[in-house]
Every structure is written in structure tokens, then in C-alpha cells.
């Protein structure tokens, strides 16, 4: 039963952070960052399995791999950026968090451009 482990882990980490916050706030932040990383590492295996299924489906439906690859990259970038932004927000640095999110949006935009171009080309063919 994965979920009980994860919830238990999260609660223990939260209590430890509270204890440490009054003495050493910086180490408390590091504990919460480590707990966040550990939780995600635990679930990363399941995400990998889902992505494998997606790959098989797209191979069977012979969808072009470029698009799926780009989508996966976008999801990966979104996740890491969100992780970093939340950590910065926990540390009280709202401005830093929004800068990270801005950079992530631009990176995702850059990745999405080829897909948008492809859609436009197809539209031109149909209409033109």
C-alpha cells in the first residue's frame, strides 16, 4: 500500500520541519526539500511505467515520435520548474519563484513552436 507509506513519510517530515524551524530555519528548509525529493523519487517509477505505455500506444498508432517526445519534455520541464518555484516560495522568495516560472514558460514555448508550425502547415495544406 504505497499511499500509507507516502502519507506517513510526509507527516514525519512535516513534524521534523516544525521542530527545526524555531532553531535553524535554513536546515528546516533543507529537510522539507529533501522530503519533497524523496517523495517524488518514490513515485517516479510509476510515472515511468505510464510513459512506457504512452510510447507503446503511440508506436502502435504510428504517431510521429517527435510530438510525444516534445510533450514529455514539456511535462518534465514543467515539473522541475514547479518543484524549484515551490521550494523558493517556501523559503519566502516569491520573486525568485516567479522568475523560475517565467523561464519555464519560455522554455516550454520554445519546445512547442515546432508542433505549432506543423499544425499550421497541415492547416495551410487543407485550406490552401
Amino acid at each position: 500500500m504505497e499511499i500509507t507509506q507516502i502519507v506517513g513519510f510526509g507527516l514525519v517530515a512535516a513534524v521534523l520541519v516544525i521542530i527545526l524551524r524555531q532553531y535553524k530555519p535554513e536546515i528546516a528548509l533543507l529537510v522539507s526539500v529533501a522530503a519533497g525529493i524523496a517523495l517524488f523519487l518514490a513515485i517516479l517509477g510509476k510515472i515511468g511505467a505510464v510513459i512506457e505505455v504512452l510510447h507503446d500506444l503511440s508506436r502502435r498508432a504510428n504517431v510521429n515520435m517527435v510530438y510525444l517526445g516534445a510533450i514529455l519534455k514539456i511535462v518534465g520541464i514543467a515539473y522541475i520548474a514547479d518543484f524549484g518555484a515551490q521550494v523558493c516560495r517556501d523559503a519566502g522568495e516569491g520573486a525568485l519563484a516567479s522568475k523560475i516560472e517565467l523561464a519555464a514558460k519560455i522554455l516550454i514555448l520554445v519546445l512547442a513552436i515546432p508542433i505549432v508550425m506543423a499544425v499550421l502547415d497541415i492547416l495551410m495544406k487543407i485550406l490552401g
Binding site: E26, V33, I37, F40, I47, G48, I51, G76
Partner: peptide
């Protein structure tokens, strides 16, 4: 703080490697 930071950065490196392999 330096000791704790070392551990956390090591864990962070592990996370980013795994994310890189999973999300290609």
C-alpha cells in the same frame, strides 16, 4: 548547514538524473 546541504544536493542530483531518464 554545509553537511546537510551536501546530502540534499546529492539527493537533488539523483532526482534530476531520474527525471532526465524518465521524461527523456
Amino acid at each position: 548547514v554545509a553537511i546537510v546541504l551536501m546530502w540534499v544536493i546529492d539527493l537533488l542530483g539523483k532526482l534530476f538524473d531520474q527525471v532526465k531518464t524518465v521524461f527523456r
